[in-house]
Simulated scan of single mutants.
Amino acid sequence: MIIDEQTVDKVAHLARLELSAAEKPEIIKDMNKILGFMDKLNEVDTTGVEPLVYMTDDENILREDVVKQVITTAEALENAPEHDGSHFLVAKVINK
C-alpha cells in the first residue's frame, strides 16, 4: 500500500488534525516508511511462535490493604477552598 495525499487528508480528518500543504509531503514520507517497516515484519517466519501477552512470567506481588493513618473530616477540609463543614464544594460542571 502506498500512502498518497488523499489518504493523508482522510487520516488527518479522522484524527482531527490540520496539516498545511508543506507538512503533507513529510507525513506521506513518514507513513510510507512505517508501512515499509510493517512489510519487513510480515516477512518474518513466526510459525510455532506463541503470541506474547506479557513481557515476563512475573506476577504482581500485592500488599495487604491496611489503613495506616486516619484523618478527621475537619482535618481533611482544613485546606479546602470551599466546604460546608462536611463536604468539599466544587463548581457545577454538568448542566441539565
Rank of each mutant, 00 (worst) to 15 (best):
A80H: 00
Q6F: 11
V93E: 11
L14V: 11
E5V: 04
I27S: 00
L77Q: 02
S20P: 01
E23F: 05
T73G: 02
A80P: 00
L52Q: 10
A91E: 08
A21K: 11
S86E: 08
V93L: 05
H13E: 13
V67D: 07
V8P: 00
E18N: 04
I3L: 04
V44D: 03
K33L: 15
T46L: 09
M55T: 13
H13Q: 14
M1N: 10
D4K: 11
E75F: 01
V11C: 03
H13D: 12
G48N: 10
V66W: 05
A15P: 01
M1L: 09
T73C: 06
L19C: 10
L17D: 02
L89H: 09
K24E: 00
L77F: 03
D30L: 07
M31I: 07
E64G: 08
K29Q: 14
I34M: 12
L14T: 09
V53T: 08
A76I: 01
E23A: 12
L19W: 06
I28N: 00
N42T: 14
G85A: 15
K10A: 11
E50D: 15
A74Y: 02
D30W: 02
A74N: 04
K92V: 04
L89T: 10
F37L: 13
I2Y: 14
P51T: 05
D4L: 03
V11I: 14
I34P: 00
A12F: 02
N60V: 01
D84Q: 13
A76F: 02
I61C: 02
M31P: 01
T46N: 06
D4M: 04
L52P: 01
I34Q: 08
A15S: 06
A15T: 02
V8W: 00
I2Q: 15
R63K: 13
V49Q: 08
V66M: 11
E78G: 08
M31W: 04
R63L: 07
L19F: 06
R16M: 07
N60C: 01
M1P: 05
V53F: 05
V67R: 13
D4R: 07
F88Q: 06
E18G: 01
V8Y: 00
M1K: 09
K24W: 01
T56D: 04
A15L: 05
I27V: 13
M38N: 10
L77D: 00
N95C: 09
K33N: 15
K92T: 03
D65K: 14
L77Y: 01
D65R: 12
M31T: 02
L14H: 09
N42Y: 13
I61Q: 03
D84V: 08
D39Y: 07
L52W: 03
M38W: 12
N42P: 03
L41P: 05
L17E: 02
Q6I: 10
N42Q: 15
A74F: 03
M38A: 13
P81T: 06
T73R: 07
E78P: 04
D4T: 06
T73Q: 06
D84I: 10
S86P: 00
N42E: 14
N42I: 09
N32A: 09
F88E: 11
V90K: 09
D65F: 11
S86N: 11
E5F: 01
E59A: 06
L77V: 04
L14M: 12
L41M: 14
I2A: 15
L14D: 14
N79T: 09
D30K: 04
I34A: 12
G36E: 06
G36N: 08
A15D: 04
F37C: 09
L89E: 12
F88K: 04
I94P: 00
Q69K: 14
